[in-house]
Computed example of a mutant assay.
Amino acid sequence: MSSSAAFPLDLADWISHQLAAVEQALDQWVSVDASAHLEHQAPVELMAAMRYAVLDGGKRLRPLLVMAAFEAVQSGLLSQVVNASEEAVTVPGALEQATGPYQAALRSACAVELIHAYSLVHDDMPCMDNDVLRRGKPTVHVQFGQASALLAGDALQALAFELLTPDDASLPAAQQAQLCRLLARAAGCTGMAGGQAIDLASVGLRLTESQLQEMHRLKTGALLKASVMMGAACGHTGAATWCALQEFGAAIGLAFQVVDDVLDVTADSATLGKTAGKDANSDKPTYVSLMGLDEARAFAQNLKTQALQALQRSGLADVRALQGLAEMVVDRTY
């Protein structure tokens, strides 16, 4: 343990600082101004739907995991970079001042959030989950219409990979490729999209625990795990540390979904910011329907223990932010 790791982390303060940088980056990159290099700027209505889907809402867990993993592998280097740029990130144009590993991490944090946002836009549409409430406000297709929602999701997905491939020299080509590969695998047919396909095909069925775990490992867990690994890929780490972080990401990814299943039956819509009881009403298999409420809660706690044990095996000097996020994921009430 490093000397800095011997002291408790003020997680709320850490989250507040990270979110300030991420929110400003998203606001700047998901904008008409950001598309000014194109021959024709993005249509105003499309950009409005994209911004509605991304800004002003959400836990931002995935970007936080990116930044926490980056901080862990960078150790003292990140604090130097962040402290040096802390004042800069509050003024226009500051994103261009962030260079090197921190630039890669910030772009990765925003890219993974854009993929998450696009998936929510599409999942909420009538052809999928047909939901009308997301992040405490009407879903995108309710607000803008189905066609605009479909295009907004498509555009957000494309923008995510554009962020990871800047046309300057701020990210080395090999790093761009690695980050794109991690994100694409997590989002595609062997990740989030594949898990959603299994979910849609499982309505009304009673899955085994292994089948349910596989579905959620893909649908939810893959992108959360990729967030951790993309953060790690923005720094420097050995094989043993990489494997430990993979185990951490897998455990947290599954734990998040187990807790989501619990909250779907224990919290109300106002608290969740989305329609409560939706899974049960749609006759979808969940950990609560399979295991019961108490056992599902216990399973989430067991996954948290697995995640924290993986961090202990990582050999990293300071994993306080990752540990704090793991505890927040499992102990949250919304």
Results as ranks from 00 to 15, higher is better:
residue 5 A to T: 02
residue 5 A to N: 04
residue 5 A to L: 11
residue 8 P to M: 13
residue 9 L to K: 07
residue 9 L to F: 03
residue 10 D to N: 07
residue 11 L to Y: 01
residue 13 D to P: 04
residue 13 D to A: 14
residue 14 W to S: 00
residue 16 S to M: 01
residue 17 H to R: 15
residue 18 Q to E: 11
residue 19 L to C: 03
residue 20 A to I: 01
residue 22 V to Y: 11
residue 22 V to A: 00
residue 22 V to N: 02
residue 23 E to D: 03
residue 24 Q to V: 12
residue 25 A to V: 07
residue 26 L to D: 01
residue 27 D to I: 00
residue 29 W to C: 00
residue 29 W to A: 07
residue 30 V to N: 04
residue 30 V to F: 00
residue 30 V to L: 06
residue 31 S to G: 03
residue 31 S to V: 02
residue 32 V to T: 15
residue 32 V to S: 00
residue 33 D to N: 12
residue 34 A to L: 15
residue 35 S to T: 12
residue 35 S to Y: 14
residue 36 A to N: 08
residue 38 L to R: 14
residue 39 E to G: 04
residue 39 E to I: 02
residue 39 E to P: 08
residue 40 H to A: 15
residue 40 H to E: 07
residue 41 Q to L: 15
residue 41 Q to I: 15
residue 41 Q to R: 09
residue 42 A to G: 13
residue 43 P to F: 15
residue 43 P to D: 15
residue 44 V to L: 14
residue 45 E to I: 08
residue 46 L to H: 12
residue 46 L to W: 14
residue 47 M to H: 10
residue 48 A to D: 08
residue 48 A to E: 11
residue 48 A to Y: 09
residue 50 M to N: 09
residue 50 M to D: 10
residue 51 R to Q: 09
residue 53 A to S: 14
residue 53 A to P: 10
residue 56 D to M: 09
residue 56 D to E: 11
residue 57 G to T: 05
residue 59 K to S: 08
residue 59 K to D: 03
residue 59 K to T: 06
residue 59 K to P: 02
residue 61 L to I: 08
residue 61 L to S: 00
residue 61 L to W: 02
residue 61 L to Q: 09
residue 62 R to F: 05
residue 63 P to S: 14
residue 63 P to Y: 02
residue 64 L to V: 00
residue 64 L to D: 02
residue 64 L to K: 05
residue 64 L to R: 01
residue 65 L to A: 04
residue 66 V to I: 07
residue 66 V to P: 04
residue 66 V to K: 11
residue 66 V to M: 04
residue 67 M to Y: 04
residue 68 A to C: 00
residue 68 A to E: 00
residue 68 A to Y: 05
residue 69 A to C: 06
residue 70 F to E: 12
residue 70 F to S: 11
residue 71 E to P: 02
residue 71 E to S: 08
residue 73 V to W: 00
residue 74 Q to N: 12
residue 75 S to K: 15
residue 76 G to C: 11
residue 76 G to I: 14
residue 80 Q to G: 14
residue 80 Q to D: 04
residue 81 V to A: 14
residue 82 V to H: 05
residue 82 V to S: 01
residue 84 A to H: 10
residue 84 A to S: 13
residue 85 S to K: 12
residue 86 E to F: 14
residue 87 E to Q: 13
residue 87 E to P: 01
residue 87 E to D: 11
residue 89 V to A: 05
residue 90 T to M: 07
residue 91 V to Q: 12
residue 93 G to F: 12
residue 94 A to C: 06
residue 94 A to Q: 02
residue 94 A to M: 08
residue 95 L to F: 15
residue 96 E to K: 15
residue 97 Q to E: 12
residue 100 G to K: 01
residue 101 P to I: 01
residue 101 P to M: 10
residue 101 P to Y: 03
residue 101 P to F: 04
residue 101 P to S: 10
residue 102 Y to P: 04
residue 102 Y to K: 00
residue 103 Q to I: 07
residue 103 Q to M: 09
residue 103 Q to Y: 14
residue 103 Q to R: 15
residue 104 A to F: 01
